[in-house]
Computed example of a mutant assay.
Amino acid sequence: MRLIGWVPMLILILCSGCSSITIEDAETVRLDYWSGEVTEEIREEYIDENNGLDYFVDAVNAAEEVTGQRVITTRPLLSLEFVMEDKENRNYHLWVTDRGEGFIQSLQPHKSLTYRLGPDSVKELKDFFETKESVEVLKGEIEFEQ
Protein backbone atom coordinates (compact mmCIF):
# COMPACT_ATOMS: atom_id res chain seq x y z
CA MET A 1 0.00 0.00 0.00
CA ARG A 2 2.82 2.40 0.81
CA LEU A 3 4.51 1.70 -2.54
CA ILE A 4 1.54 3.19 -4.40
CA GLY A 5 2.14 6.51 -2.63
CA TRP A 6 5.74 6.56 -3.88
CA VAL A 7 4.96 5.76 -7.54
CA PRO A 8 4.17 9.38 -8.57
CA MET A 9 7.32 10.59 -6.81
CA LEU A 10 9.46 7.96 -8.58
CA ILE A 11 7.97 8.88 -11.96
CA LEU A 12 8.72 12.55 -11.32
CA ILE A 13 12.32 11.79 -10.34
CA LEU A 14 12.88 9.58 -13.38
CA CYS A 15 11.40 12.14 -15.77
CA SER A 16 13.44 14.98 -14.32
CA GLY A 17 16.58 12.91 -14.89
CA CYS A 18 15.82 12.52 -18.60
CA SER A 19 17.53 15.10 -20.74
CA SER A 20 15.79 16.70 -23.64
CA ILE A 21 17.85 18.69 -26.06
CA THR A 22 14.92 20.14 -27.95
CA ILE A 23 15.68 23.69 -28.98
CA GLU A 24 12.67 26.00 -29.07
CA ASP A 25 12.55 29.76 -29.37
CA ALA A 26 16.21 30.25 -30.28
CA GLU A 27 16.87 33.84 -31.34
CA THR A 28 20.40 33.30 -32.61
CA VAL A 29 23.23 30.82 -32.44
CA ARG A 30 26.79 31.96 -31.84
CA LEU A 31 29.37 29.85 -33.67
CA ASP A 32 32.92 29.82 -32.33
CA TYR A 33 35.02 28.16 -35.03
CA TRP A 34 38.12 26.34 -33.78
CA SER A 35 41.24 26.55 -35.88
CA GLY A 36 44.88 25.76 -35.37
CA GLU A 37 46.16 23.84 -32.40
CA VAL A 38 45.23 26.20 -29.56
CA THR A 39 41.81 27.39 -28.42
CA GLU A 40 42.90 31.05 -28.52
CA GLU A 41 42.45 30.95 -32.30
CA ILE A 42 38.67 31.13 -32.29
CA ARG A 43 36.62 33.01 -34.86
CA GLU A 44 33.10 34.04 -33.87
CA GLU A 45 29.95 34.33 -36.03
CA TYR A 46 26.29 34.96 -35.18
CA ILE A 47 23.57 33.15 -37.15
CA ASP A 48 19.88 34.06 -37.07
CA GLU A 49 16.75 32.97 -38.93
CA ASN A 50 17.88 34.91 -42.01
CA ASN A 51 21.15 33.07 -42.54
CA GLY A 52 20.99 29.48 -41.32
CA LEU A 53 19.71 29.21 -37.75
CA ASP A 54 17.30 26.44 -38.79
CA TYR A 55 20.18 24.17 -39.90
CA PHE A 56 21.55 24.13 -36.36
CA VAL A 57 18.18 23.97 -34.57
CA ASP A 58 17.02 21.09 -36.78
CA ALA A 59 20.32 19.23 -36.33
CA VAL A 60 20.14 19.41 -32.53
CA ASN A 61 16.44 18.56 -32.39
CA ALA A 62 16.91 15.47 -34.59
CA ALA A 63 20.08 14.25 -32.83
CA GLU A 64 19.94 10.93 -31.00
CA GLU A 65 21.72 10.25 -27.73
CA VAL A 66 24.66 7.88 -28.12
CA THR A 67 24.34 4.76 -25.99
CA GLY A 68 27.35 3.97 -23.85
CA GLN A 69 28.31 7.62 -23.42
CA ARG A 70 31.93 8.44 -24.21
CA VAL A 71 33.71 11.77 -24.48
CA ILE A 72 34.95 12.75 -27.94
CA THR A 73 38.69 13.50 -27.93
CA THR A 74 38.88 14.87 -31.48
CA ARG A 75 39.08 18.66 -31.55
CA PRO A 76 35.60 20.06 -32.44
CA LEU A 77 34.90 21.99 -35.61
CA LEU A 78 33.20 24.64 -33.51
CA SER A 79 31.40 25.46 -30.30
CA LEU A 80 27.89 26.77 -30.53
CA GLU A 81 25.67 28.65 -28.13
CA PHE A 82 21.95 28.97 -28.72
CA VAL A 83 20.71 32.30 -27.39
CA MET A 84 17.22 31.50 -26.16
CA GLU A 85 14.21 33.74 -25.62
CA ASP A 86 13.63 34.04 -21.85
CA LYS A 87 15.40 30.73 -21.13
CA GLU A 88 18.80 29.39 -20.27
CA ASN A 89 21.18 29.39 -23.24
CA ARG A 90 22.34 26.00 -24.58
CA ASN A 91 26.00 25.24 -25.39
CA TYR A 92 27.47 22.42 -27.48
CA HIS A 93 30.60 21.31 -29.29
CA LEU A 94 29.99 20.23 -32.90
CA TRP A 95 31.84 17.73 -35.09
CA VAL A 96 31.06 17.29 -38.80
CA THR A 97 33.41 15.18 -40.93
CA ASP A 98 34.14 14.78 -44.61
CA ARG A 99 32.99 11.15 -44.19
CA GLY A 100 29.44 12.19 -43.33
CA GLU A 101 29.63 11.77 -39.56
CA GLY A 102 28.28 14.33 -37.15
CA PHE A 103 28.14 14.61 -33.36
CA ILE A 104 27.37 17.16 -30.71
CA GLN A 105 28.28 17.12 -27.04
CA SER A 106 26.26 19.21 -24.66
CA LEU A 107 28.12 21.56 -22.38
CA GLN A 108 25.32 23.55 -20.75
CA PRO A 109 22.84 22.88 -19.22
CA HIS A 110 23.41 19.10 -19.70
CA LYS A 111 27.10 18.39 -19.25
CA SER A 112 28.98 16.00 -21.56
CA LEU A 113 26.13 14.11 -23.17
CA THR A 114 27.00 12.89 -26.68
CA TYR A 115 24.50 12.86 -29.54
CA ARG A 116 24.79 11.57 -33.10
CA LEU A 117 23.53 13.82 -35.88
CA GLY A 118 21.32 12.32 -38.57
CA PRO A 119 22.63 12.01 -42.16
CA ASP A 120 20.30 14.75 -43.44
CA SER A 121 21.52 17.15 -40.75
CA VAL A 122 25.15 16.37 -41.52
CA LYS A 123 24.58 17.04 -45.23
CA GLU A 124 22.83 20.36 -44.53
CA LEU A 125 25.60 21.46 -42.19
CA LYS A 126 28.33 20.44 -44.66
CA ASP A 127 26.54 22.46 -47.36
CA PHE A 128 26.31 25.41 -44.95
CA PHE A 129 30.04 25.27 -44.16
CA GLU A 130 30.94 25.06 -47.86
CA THR A 131 29.51 28.57 -48.26
CA LYS A 132 31.85 29.91 -45.56
CA GLU A 133 35.26 31.25 -46.37
CA SER A 134 38.12 29.32 -44.74
CA VAL A 135 35.86 26.79 -42.95
CA GLU A 136 36.43 23.12 -43.65
CA VAL A 137 34.73 20.15 -42.06
CA LEU A 138 36.95 17.75 -40.14
CA LYS A 139 39.01 15.18 -42.01
CA GLY A 140 38.97 11.51 -41.01
CA GLU A 141 37.18 9.78 -38.17
CA ILE A 142 36.00 11.07 -34.83
CA GLU A 143 38.00 9.62 -31.93
CA PHE A 144 36.44 8.77 -28.59
CA GLU A 145 37.93 8.47 -25.11
CA GLN A 146 38.75 4.84 -24.30
Results as ranks from 00 to 15, higher is better:
residue 90 R to I: 07
residue 63 A to G: 06
residue 2 R to V: 07
residue 93 H to A: 13
residue 10 L to R: 02
residue 130 E to R: 13
residue 138 L to T: 02
residue 79 S to N: 14
residue 107 L to D: 07
residue 103 F to C: 10
residue 19 S to Y: 07
residue 136 E to N: 10
residue 79 S to M: 06
residue 56 F to S: 10
residue 123 K to S: 15
residue 97 T to H: 11
residue 9 M to D: 03
residue 15 C to S: 13
residue 22 T to H: 12
residue 23 I to E: 07
residue 76 P to D: 04
residue 6 W to V: 09
residue 46 Y to M: 08
residue 38 V to E: 12
residue 82 F to A: 11
residue 123 K to M: 11
residue 69 Q to A: 04
residue 45 E to F: 02
residue 124 E to S: 15
residue 23 I to M: 10
residue 63 A to W: 00
residue 106 S to V: 01
residue 22 T to S: 14
residue 78 L to I: 05
residue 72 I to T: 13
residue 137 V to Y: 05
residue 65 E to Y: 01
residue 80 L to S: 08
residue 64 E to K: 15
residue 37 E to L: 03
residue 33 Y to E: 02
residue 38 V to S: 05
residue 37 E to N: 08
residue 71 V to P: 01
residue 43 R to D: 03
residue 2 R to W: 05
residue 12 L to F: 09
residue 49 E to Q: 15
residue 65 E to C: 01
residue 19 S to M: 05
residue 91 N to K: 13
residue 44 E to V: 13
residue 100 G to Y: 06
residue 50 N to V: 12
residue 42 I to K: 02
residue 39 T to V: 08
residue 6 W to F: 05
residue 141 E to F: 02
residue 112 S to H: 14
residue 136 E to K: 07
residue 5 G to R: 04
residue 111 K to N: 06
residue 35 S to Q: 12
residue 63 A to S: 13
residue 81 E to S: 09
residue 59 A to I: 02
residue 24 E to L: 12
residue 122 V to M: 03
residue 47 I to A: 10
residue 113 L to F: 08
residue 95 W to A: 05
residue 52 G to T: 11
residue 70 R to N: 14
residue 20 S to G: 10
residue 135 V to W: 05
residue 16 S to D: 05
residue 6 W to R: 04
residue 50 N to P: 04
residue 145 E to H: 07
residue 101 E to L: 12
residue 48 D to P: 12
residue 89 N to P: 12
residue 141 E to Y: 03
residue 87 K to E: 15
residue 138 L to K: 08
residue 1 M to K: 04
residue 39 T to G: 06
